[in-house]
Design a protein around this nucleic acid. Sequence first.
RNA 1: GGGCGAUUGGCUCAGUCGGUUAGAGCGCGCGGUUCACAUCCGCGAGGUCACUGGUUCGAAUCCAGUAUCGCCCACCA
Length: 914
Amino acid sequence: MTDTTNTTTNDLPKAYRPADFEGAIYERWLAADVFAPDGAGSTADPEAQPFVIIQPPPNITGSLHLGHAQRATVEDLMIRHARMLGRPALFLPGLDHASIAAQFVLDRIIAAEGETRQSLGRERYLERMREFVAATREVMLGQERRLGASFDWGRLRYTMDEVSARAVRAAFRRLYERDLAYRTEALVNWCPGCRTSVSDLEVVSTPETGTLWSVRYHLIDEATGQPDPAATITVATTRPETILGDTAVAVHPDDDRYRALVGRRVRIPFVERDAPVIADTVVDRAFGTGAVKITPAHDHDDYETGRRHGLPMPTILDDAAAIAGTGTPYDGLDRYEARRRIVADLEARGDLAGERPHEMVIGRCQRSDDVIEPRLKTQWFIRTGPLAAAALEATRSGRTRIVPGHFEKTWEHWLTNIRDWNVSRQLWWGHRIPAWYCPDGHVTVSSDEAGPDACAVCSRPASDLTQDPDIFDTWFSSGLWPFSTLGWPESTPDYARYYPTTVMETAYDIIFFWVARMVMLGIELTGETPFATIALSGLIRDPIGRKMSKTTGNVVDPLGVMDETGADALRFAVVHGATPGNDQRFSDQKLENARNFANKLWNATRFVVGARPVTIAADAPRATPDPAHLGPGERWVRSRLAATTGEVDRALAEFAFAEVTRALYDGIWSEFCDWGLELAKIRLADATLPAAEREATWWTLVEALDGYLRLLHPVMPFVTEELWGALPHRATDPAMLIVARWPGVGERDLVVEGQVQALVELVRGIRNARSEAHVEPASWLPVGVALPVALGPAFEALRPAIERLARARPLERYLTREALHGAMGSGGLAVIAGEIEAMIAVGGAAGDSADARADRIRLERELAEAEGFLEAARARLANEAFTSKAPAAVIEGVRTREAELADQVERLRSRLEG
RNA sequence: GGGCGAUUGGCUCAGUCGGUUAGAGCGCGCGGUUCACAUCCGCGAGGUCACUGGUUCGAAUCCAGUAUCGCCCACCA
């Protein structure tokens, strides 16, 4: 038992238990004030370009789900990377008041208490809401802390705070003054359940099977002015209840069946109103009967038709979508009850000409699933045409880049076909629209919190004015987020320094709701596109690809996951499986794999820390290994770290975060742990080596581990911080990894990489041969190798490690293959690993258990494989077209390959024959 | 009706703007109590890269078309 390494216990516990330290680490970060770009503990270069990330503020309606966890992780990853690069990095936390979503949640809560919005009244309801969000707010912020999000908590914003309110008022006033906000009566999407209008985006087209009824309308006898019992025109409708709002029947002008009827009048049933038969090209002659009833106040097509023809537009539905104001017995009935009754009554009158099932698309409320009712309302709209044009210009010119790029098409399509945005909501929870009306109908828009002093048009005193009772669409305030959070419209220092921002990150599902609106409003109000890059992620789905939802019951609670496997594992898992813009399935296996990786890293660090040579003091300052004392193993470790660093840098630049984790997973596990540590173990334990060499080996491991921990820190901040704390540091290092510097890309040593790779293949080849021949695993067998001269020094340097890893003892080296064969004879197992050849002697006890037949099968398989490849290579080289057209380097590569394969085939053959 | 994306071993996914033998995790089979780690180690099996055609010396990768699945957008009663 040599005592070349220290035996003192280090302070890392034997087992990786994330729950034991993650909370404490977060507290240390907070105490050191390292999250804020201008915090006391920041190591940012004040001269460097700030890096500002915009995150979608989560709805303050409950707890975070896995999607939020993924958002926060990806964003936090980017901000930590920027921070380590020394850039002032701003990650501003926030919450969205989510007016309609919040009311939807609260309504259900108070319903359980036997109350309703109406029974409480506006003031008490809002009070209840404030209590509710005060509670959920703390839960959500706690979840973000638990996840390790390095938010600048001192800059926490909320879309209902005063800073946001001021921005909302200022924004609306400017839009109004520029004629980009206007108030008009128009057909809006009304949700009877939510009792508010919603934007086009919140209407979900749902395919359904409905009924198409054919109804006879009686023509008016010109002479008597009374309906003619015999002369009728049959219209087709899916909504018989809207008959009560009909003001015309339309046919196609070129339709011979009806040409004569155009200009005649029909009697609308039940309301007993006379309406004209009009001609309009919107009518599809092939559909239904070719005649369509026109209900301008409750159908988008009909509204347009009604406007073209100057038709009356009677409203027949109230806020609850019950029939109202028709003067018929149907008043007060729900729309569907009215439909049933009207169909029955039409039948009774003999005017129902037919009915058949009909595939149709129905608009439903995204929030409540109620069928949306188009209704005429006087409301506020944002004129999106000019705003959308500017937003398109921003992406086309490249001032704002969308990643991944294919979303640009979606972006283009939506912004090119955009319609004006209805921003009025008949809800209570949200920003009140700052518009006041005087009795004469004049409109005054004010950004003053107290409202205007007087009517802007007729100067009536404020006491005569009434404020619009409506509030804004919640996305109006979210649309101002990138700049309202920095103090806009005031020219605050934060706004000057951090706007426009660097990266906006979100899932693709709110690209229209939020991203497009931020860009439109940002350009219009600040004159600048709000962010340089739009980084879009996919959605998290359950293991079988379904969207996670509470009703399906397949939601994963991030807190539960983190308690069990740690925040780091969760973070790694959600990043590891995510290709930009693509959905990913989340499963326990992925989480477990991530946890295992953290555990691997934990143990590797524990090993390195514990393997400190006794000649190095426990508190020795970090030393740079002397290059003269480095062996091929050490140089290989350094070179591979450089390779991984380069890959990580490239992946980060491309927002390919899954590639970051893949590169680190492979680099740390398959390279550093599997080979770097295994090779180093031998040297560290070798008492015959000069202490300086053992020390150089150890410092190399420390250096590499330090580098890997830095690279991994953005993804797994807790475990890396904890482990980094156990490593020796340089005097120039800060106290914590979170503010340490991102590693530079070291130099590759491709020669050493090639040599070590060849020797690794040798070890693998020997292991393979032993395993296939069923050699007793623990047995040591004599092995002879013949290898190219160039590999000699590396082989000798690593000989003890190769011996141990291949369980080869004694391990003899021969200068030629002939010498190898001569010494080893024809018995035993042959290994042909590239240019290296080895023979394993299987005599004695171990030889008895060796399976000669299995070994022969292995060699035959290897031969067949090599022959296949050789044939392919030769075929290519024989191809005149290939040799004349392919690049020289490629041809050279195939030639080399061909020679190697030929050599291998020959050796395998002689081995099998011999 | 438009548009987008996906299709790679049993499962989940990579594959860096065409170039030698298509990778990983999980799962599977065989074997391991060596002093970092059984949350581990070693070895192995398993893929006509959805299909058809084209471009090219060369295609998982580029082009066209087809099929299946998913998503987004869309005012035809």
